[in-house]
């Protein structure tokens, strides 16, 4: 019990499906099983990375945590409080504890509002601050993310991409969330700006103890910023491990393929590394392969892989891996 106090997020057997029932093409309309039975805990001040190819369900999972998506089954607790099935008032209360930032800051900011109004909005709407107190709090938030209080009167177009992402982060921090979901927050940024945002996220965590779920496809960024890594494939987790274990001893064939695909920014390392190039592309989540969903692309697949789905099982070093042969 005391352990669960430490968890800002606890998900149990969560599934999120799209389509199906009453489908346009009749009752057999394909169900997209975007998230298909996942368990995930995130501790206070922990950063968990979620990695996997486009379409594997990362954004759907993120959206479900913040309540933008309703699961067909399972439980989602934020700071110990159940989100699934909660009434709207309670939901509203829980939701301030979890905020989200997206890949493209341009799309998350209203071009007609000053950034001060944008950052202050959640505080105003919830009646937490107004007038002079609001102005002060907005100034404080701007300073926290490395901007200046007097920037409050400017509009989004007057800022660079990196500065806009800082504004988005300031807004997300306004309600002092326990958990910040970052859905590919630096993918659209140039490396020099990306480094600034990563430094900021690390500093904010040290200062405020906020937890992150960090969605990314860039394993060098993941290695830099995360404490634990979760690998997702077609709606399920296939490997979960602490950072050092994960990078020193990746186990699932899919994890190893992902790692080998990310080019290392060092010609000597990159050209001498063992290659494990994945054939083919991600199958459609409307038609998930039987058994181990990865068997259609896995170089280690055997008979059993196409019939029996491997469960996540613990390994001696603490990693959880879903594979018959790893």
């Amino acid at each position: 019990m005391s352990e669960s106090q430490e968890n800002v997020l606890e998900m149990r057997d969560v599934a999120v499906h799209f389509g199906g029932r009453g489908g346009f093409f009749g009752s057999s309309g394909a169900v997209v099983k975007a998230v298909n039975g996942v368990d995930l805990d995130i501790r206070k001040a922990e950063t968990v990375a979620l990695v996997g190819e486009s379409g594997c369900g990362k954004s759907t999972l993120s959206n479900t945590i913040v309540g933008l998506q309703t699961p067909v089954s399972g439980s989602v607790k934020i700071s110990g409080e159940e989100v699934v099935g909660a009434d709207s008032r309670k939901l509203n209360d829980i939701r301030r504890k979890v905020q989200m930032i997206f890949q493209d800051p341009a799309l998350s900011l209203d071009p007609r509002s000053t950034i001060g109004a944008t950052i202050g909005e959640p505080l105003l709407v919830r009646g937490i601050a107004r007038g002079k107190a609001l102005k002060e709090r907005v100034g404080e938030l701007l300073t926290q993310v490395g901007l200046r209080a007097e920037h409050a009167d400017r509009y989004p177009h007057q800022f660079s991409g990196g500065q806009r992402q800082r504004v988005v982060i300031a807004r997300a921090l306004a309600l002092e969330p326990d958990l910040l979901i970052c859905d590919e927050p630096v993918s659209a940024l140039d490396v020099s700006v990306r480094a600034q945002i990563l430094n900021l996220l690390v500093a904010l965590q040290k200062r405020m103890g906020v937890s992150y779920l960090f969605v990314s496809h860039d394993l060098s960024v993941v290695r830099h910023i995360c404490d634990r890594v979760v690998v997702m494939y077609l709606g399920r987790f296939v490997e979960i491990a602490e950072r050092d274990t994960f990078f020193a001893n990746p186990k699932h064939p899919y994890t190893r393929a992902l790692m080998s695909a990310v080019p290392e920014a060092d010609p000597a390392v990159q050209r001498s590394k063992q290659r494990f190039v994945l054939q083919g592309e991600l199958p459609s989540p409307a038609n998930i392969p039987s058994g181990c969903a990865f068997h259609t692309r896995c170089p280690l697949a055997t008979e059993i892989c196409s019939t029996v789905r491997p469960e996540l099982t613990p390994r001696p070093d603490g990693a959880l891996v879903a594979c018959h042969h790893a």
Partner: peptide, 20 residues
Amino acid sequence: LLLASVPKLHHAPKTDLATI
């Protein structure tokens, strides 16, 4: 600086990256 702003194997996690 461009090269240093990319996290590399030898970087200690959660330390400051070089920025421009």
